[in-house]
Amino acid sequence: MRSSGHASTWTAETHSPEETLDLGRRIGRAARPGDVLALVGDLGSGKTVLAKGAAEGLGAASAREVTSPTFVLCREHLGGRMPFYHLDAYRLRGAADLEAIGAAEILGGDGLSALEWADRAPQALPPDHLEVRLEIIGPSDRRLTFTPRGRGAARLLAGLTPVAPGGC
């Protein structure tokens, strides 16, 4: 994995789903209650894979147990050091829908939340969130651009960027 960044954003490139999963695990390990990941990217760009890793990093669920939330809109995984909420805005249309799944209570609440297709429901996001843009740059290559929106997100990102020797 290659990474680079300015003061605010950080870019990482992964070369397999396993590497994306690993990056997710690092997010899960660095996360604090109330952290929000806003995942933005095309179909197949690895949003669910990153979320699987985050759940594993928290110890909330195994990657195998974290499946696409598109159908039910929100899945909770409560087995870890804090809850992991996996939400999907793919089918959402507007504020009433978000209310219907209790997004306001979940996002920024007692756990780590990841909202897939966050660009489809920007009004659902709390002001403080970590935006993660996933781009497909090759058959198994993905570019992930992290942009912190708020202090909590900046702290989470700072917890990710120093890649310790031997991984983390």
Partner: peptide, 11 residues
């Protein structure tokens, strides 16, 4: 017209 089930409309 939305290309999928919209939860609030569904309920």
């Amino acid at each position: 017209k939305y290309g999928g089930v919209v939860p609030e409309i569904a309920s």
